[in-house]
Simulated scan of single mutants.
Amino acid sequence: MITKIQKWGNSQGLRLSKDLLADVDIEVGDTVDVSERDGSLVVTPVRRVRGRLDLEELVREIPADYKPGEFDWGPPAGREVW
């Protein structure tokens, strides 16, 4: 696929065809890793577990002084066994 870098506002962008994105299983809004390898631009999809976040990323955001506590969810609402 031949395309060109274009200016959009104060940024530059690269348009990729829908077919090319489908071939590599990338959709609009997906997170990708963009890197340089031997003078080439490499775009790799970032695979996430359970949607768009991964466990390591979530754990990194927990404050160091966080102390978990208990939460009362109220009485059973169905046939739950407590």
Rank of each mutant, 00 (worst) to 15 (best):
G78L: 04
I62E: 01
I5V: 15
K18G: 00
A64S: 10
V34G: 02
V24D: 04
D23M: 07
A64R: 09
K67L: 10
L41R: 03
L16P: 03
D30R: 02
K18N: 12
G74I: 03
D23W: 00
R47N: 15
L14H: 04
M1S: 12
Q6R: 10
R52P: 01
R60G: 04
D19W: 00
E36T: 14
V32C: 10
L14E: 08
A77R: 13
D25R: 12
S17A: 04
R37G: 01
L58Y: 10
L58M: 15
P45C: 04
R48L: 12
D23V: 00
V43A: 07
S40Y: 04
D38V: 00
E70T: 15
V81R: 12
D65A: 10
R52V: 05
D72T: 03
M1Q: 08
D30I: 03
P45F: 01
L53V: 12
D25A: 15
I62L: 14
D19I: 01
W8E: 15
K67N: 07
R50E: 15
R47L: 13
G51A: 12
P45D: 01
I2P: 02
V34L: 09
L20P: 00
R52W: 10
R50M: 09
K67R: 14
G9P: 01
G78C: 01
L20Y: 13
D33L: 07
L21S: 06
E36V: 12
T3D: 02
T31M: 13
P45V: 03
V24S: 09
P75S: 10
V59Q: 14
S40Q: 14
T3P: 07
E80W: 02
P45A: 06
E57M: 06
V49W: 02
Q6L: 12
R37Q: 09
T3R: 10
G13M: 04
G51V: 14
R79L: 08
T44I: 00
R79D: 15
L21W: 08
A77S: 03
E57H: 07
Y66H: 10
K4G: 12
P76K: 03
D23H: 09
L41T: 08
D65V: 02
G39F: 00
P63A: 13
I5Y: 04
R37E: 02
L21E: 08
Q6Y: 04
G78W: 04
V32Y: 01
L53M: 15
G69E: 11
I2W: 03
W8C: 15
D19S: 13
E57I: 03
S17M: 02
R79W: 05
P45T: 02
G69Q: 15
A77M: 09
A22G: 12
L21Y: 08
E80R: 01
R52Q: 13
V49S: 13
D65E: 15
I2F: 08
P76Y: 08
L20F: 14
V42E: 11
L21P: 00
K4P: 01
E70R: 14
G13W: 00
W73Q: 14
V32E: 05
R48D: 11
L55K: 11
P76R: 02
V46C: 02
V81P: 02
L41Q: 04
W8I: 14
L58Q: 14
K18V: 05
D72A: 10
K7Q: 15
D25Y: 08
M1K: 09
V24R: 05
